[in-house]
Amino acid sequence: MIIDRDGNITIIAQEKASAKTLVNNIEQAYHKYKNYHLIIRLSSLEKIKLEDVIEFLRLSNTHRSAKKSFVIVSDQVNLDEMPDEIVVVPTLHEAYDIIEMEDIERDLGF
Rank of each mutant, 00 (worst) to 15 (best):
K68C: 00
L59K: 04
K47H: 09
S43H: 01
M82A: 09
R58S: 13
N78I: 06
K49R: 14
D80I: 07
A66W: 12
S69Y: 12
R64A: 06
N61P: 02
N78C: 00
M82N: 02
I72S: 00
I72W: 14
L50C: 00
E81H: 09
I86T: 05
S44L: 09
Q76S: 10
D84S: 12
D75G: 10
N78T: 07
L45M: 13
L45S: 03
P83I: 02
I72M: 10
S60K: 04
R64P: 05
N78H: 12
Q76V: 05
K49W: 13
D84Y: 09
K49L: 11
K47D: 14
L79D: 08
K68H: 15
P83M: 07
V71A: 05
I48E: 04
R64G: 05
V73S: 06
M82W: 15
L57M: 11
I54G: 04
S60V: 02
L45G: 01
V73C: 12
K49P: 04
E55K: 07
R58Q: 05
K68M: 10
K47A: 11
L59T: 08
D52I: 04
E46I: 11
T62I: 13
D80K: 15
F56A: 01
H63I: 11
K68R: 15
K49Y: 13
R58N: 08
I48M: 07
D80H: 05
F56M: 07
D52G: 11
I86V: 11
K47R: 11
S65L: 12
F70V: 07
N61T: 06
D84L: 12
L59Q: 04
L79E: 10
N78K: 10
V71G: 05
S74C: 05
D84A: 10
S65N: 15
P83C: 00
L45I: 14
I54Y: 06
S44G: 04
F56T: 03
Q76E: 15
E51T: 12
K67N: 14
K47F: 12
E85V: 07
S60A: 15
D52L: 06
I86P: 08
R64L: 02
F70H: 05
I54F: 03
D80F: 00
L57F: 15
E55R: 06
F56W: 08
L79Q: 09
S65F: 14
I72K: 04
L79V: 08
L59M: 08
F70W: 08
E51N: 09
H63A: 11
V53Q: 02
V77W: 02
H63T: 12
E55L: 03
D80L: 08
D80W: 01
I72C: 08
V77S: 00
L59A: 00
T62K: 14
I54H: 07
R58G: 01
I48D: 05
S74V: 04
E55H: 13
S44C: 01
M82T: 04
E51D: 09
K68E: 06
A66S: 12
V73T: 07
E85S: 10
S74W: 01
V73M: 05
L50A: 03
S69G: 11
H63N: 12
S43W: 03
D84M: 06
I72R: 02
D75W: 00
D84N: 15
F70N: 02
Q76W: 00
L50N: 09
K47N: 13
E85D: 14
D84H: 10
P83L: 00
A66V: 01
E85R: 10
